[in-house]
């Protein structure tokens, strides 16, 4: 809970939705990818937003994201800041009065944003997710120094310097291995990733 700044949306000209801009198939894509077919039953009560500890950081509230998906505002949803603020805490999912698994929907939206190139390359969350993917592809497990350096390469070295003290602190406390652990059958892991990701994230 933070002191919520007054940042009521709607500065600037009113949005006008042109019917031609609406992607009628978007909701179907999202439902298929997320396995959440209850999206059409949302009653727009805002329980998701009210339960979300990150709502105040978002450009669109989670409730609004759901309605935008339903109405086919694909570009606006995939280019939004909101989807990258989901911390996967699952409060919206367990509290939704219509049983919509919104966390799963958010996974799907992030994935679509990456695959369709909406996520800016230097933006922190996409960079982090892409690097994570590569590190696990290389070692089969997470290797924190690799992750840190990879993220820095993607989003600028300023970041590496900011992360350095933490990394050193971890080393000193025996919380970080200098050398990576590698799964012996790392080929198996790579094969699994190849098959499911279908090259989605390699751009």
């Amino acid at each position: 809970m933070r002191a919520v700044q007054s940042q009521v949306p709607g500065r600037g000209p009113l949005p006008v939705v042109g019917e031609a801009d609406l992607d009628g198939k978007f909701v179907v894509t999202v439902m298929e990818l997320s396995g959440e077919d209850g999206l059409l039953g949302c009653i727009q009560c805002g329980t998701c937003t009210g339960s979300c500890q990150l709502s105040s950081w978002m450009d669109y509230t989670p409730r609004r994201i759901v309605d935008m998906v339903r109405k086919g505002l694909a570009r606006e949803v995939l280019a939004s800041r909101a989807i990258w603020y989901c911390a996967s805490c699952y409060y919206c999912t367990v509290r939704c009065p219509r049983g919509i698994k919104l966390t799963e929907v958010l996974y799907a939206l992030k994935s679509l944003a990456l695959a369709r190139g909406y996520a800016e390359p230097g933006a922190p969350a996409p960079a982090f997710y892409r690097t994570f993917f590569e590190v696990v592809g290389r070692y089969g497990r997470l290797y924190e120094p690799g992750l840190m350096i990879g993220v820095a390469l993607r989003s600028g070295f300023g970041r590496l310097f900011r992360l350095a003290p933490l990394g050193l602190g971890m080393l000193r406390r025996g919380k970080m291995a200098l050398l990576p652990e590698r799964v012996r059958a790392v080929d198996e892991v790579r094969a699994l990733m190849e098959r499911v990701s279908r090259g989605l994230v390699r751009r």
Partner: peptide, 11 residues
């Protein structure tokens, strides 16, 4: 904690 859905704002 709630969303003011008509404003589109978290409150």
């Amino acid at each position: 904690h709630a969303e003011d859905t008509l404003l589109g704002a978290y409150r």
